[in-house]
């Protein structure tokens, strides 16, 4: 059973809870592959997508997940609401609560916002990415994809490459993979590796050639051009030379290694086009699995009413 009220981050979850979530996503994935992609499970439930940052990908994934489960979903984004008029998160949360939301999915540029929201509302809160903190549903879909493809998580070597400093995906992946017994290595320029990250149970490398040997899974992070403007690395060209994944470097990993990317990709920068479209890449599967994992999350967090089970 999954007894958490909210999903704010993978840091809070045990290996058992993560396994349960992933197991629940299996029947959900079946539903997506059927001609009728809909079950009546969450009829009458209201899911609010509260997005303070643009994210077509994550938002539509959650939206489809809600629709496949027959929940009603509403999108509130920063450009279309009082959010843009400077209403505080606290007041927006109270309003959404009054509208009768059962689940609120929050994407916010500031770390820790989902915790503030969860303290304010009775509805279940799912963190869809908060600043550089966590993006738990992304990490869960990564875990699901890897487990489905490789049959296990324990004992795998997972290499996360790129801008770990600003990446919520990296943090959630580190918590998730290490908790499931995988070995995690991060690799990037020293200016993009946050201090003290080794205490999360990972090893740090600055050279891809040292990080990749023996890798079962390679997670490439998106590099944002604005980081160059902040002076964190000299140029995209130099970044691509040092940290871009190409055929030659992929050959250093274990054969059959998987390549993941949370998207959207910068082809030719962190990942070469032939790798992105190659047989190692599971980037498209990640998208499908994302819907399944989010259906599982919605199903498990939208339970209501009494805390007992009847004799169905």
């Amino acid at each position: 059973m999954f007894k958490c009220k909210n999903l704010l981050g993978l840091q809070d979850l045990s290996a058992e809870e993560i396994t349960f979530l992933l197991d629940t996503a299996i029947p959900m994935k079946d539903i997506i592959s059927r001609p009728i992609k809909k079950v009546p499970t969450l009829r009458g439930k209201t899911v609010v997508n509260l997005f303070y940052e643009n994210s077509t990908r994550t938002r539509s994934s959650f939206e489809l997940a809600a629709k496949y489960l027959s929940a009603d979903s509403v999108n509130i984004s920063s450009s279309s609401s009082s959010v843009a008029k400077g209403e505080s998160l606290y007041d927006t949360a109270r309003t959404i609560q009054s509208l009768g939301a059962d689940v609120i999915i929050l994407r916010h540029p500031m770390a820790g916002s989902p915790r503030l929201l969860a303290r304010t509302v009775d509805a279940a809160v799912i963190n869809a990415g908060d600043g550089a903190h966590e993006h738990p549903s992304q990490a869960l879909l990564d875990l699901f994809t890897v487990r489905e493809r490789l049959g296990r998580l324990a004992g795998l070597k997972v290499v996360i490459v790129g801008d770990v400093l600003h990446s919520r995906v990296a943090r959630s992946d580190i918590w998730g993979f290490t908790r499931m017994g995988a070995e995690v290595v991060v690799c990037g320029p020293p200016t993009l590796i946050p201090p003290g990250i080794d205490r999360m149970g990972v090893r740090v490398f600055h050279r891809l050639e040292e990080a990749l040997p023996g890798a079962d899974v390679i997670i490439m992070l998106r590099i944002q051009k604005e980081r160059q403007q902040q002076g964190l690395f000299p140029s995209l060209r130099e970044y691509a030379v040092l940290y871009g994944l190409n055929r030659r470097r992929l050959a250093l990993a274990r054969s059959g290694a998987l390549v993941l990317h949370p998207g959207p990709m910068n082809r030719g920068v962190e990942i070469s086009a032939d790798i992105a479209d190659g047989t190692s890449s599971v980037i498209e599967e990640q998208v499908t699995n994302g819907v399944a994992v989010r259906m599982a999350l919605l199903y498990l967090l939208a339970g209501g009413g009494d805390r007992h089970e009847n004799d169905y």
């Binding site: 840091q11 820790g112 600043g131 550089a132 919520r168 201090p195």
Partner: peptide, 13 residues
């Protein structure tokens, strides 16, 4: 403070 906690919390140190 910049350190382990700023890293796991994703807050600027």
């Amino acid at each position: 403070h910049e350190g382990y906690y700023s890293t796991i919390l994703g807050l600027k140190g």
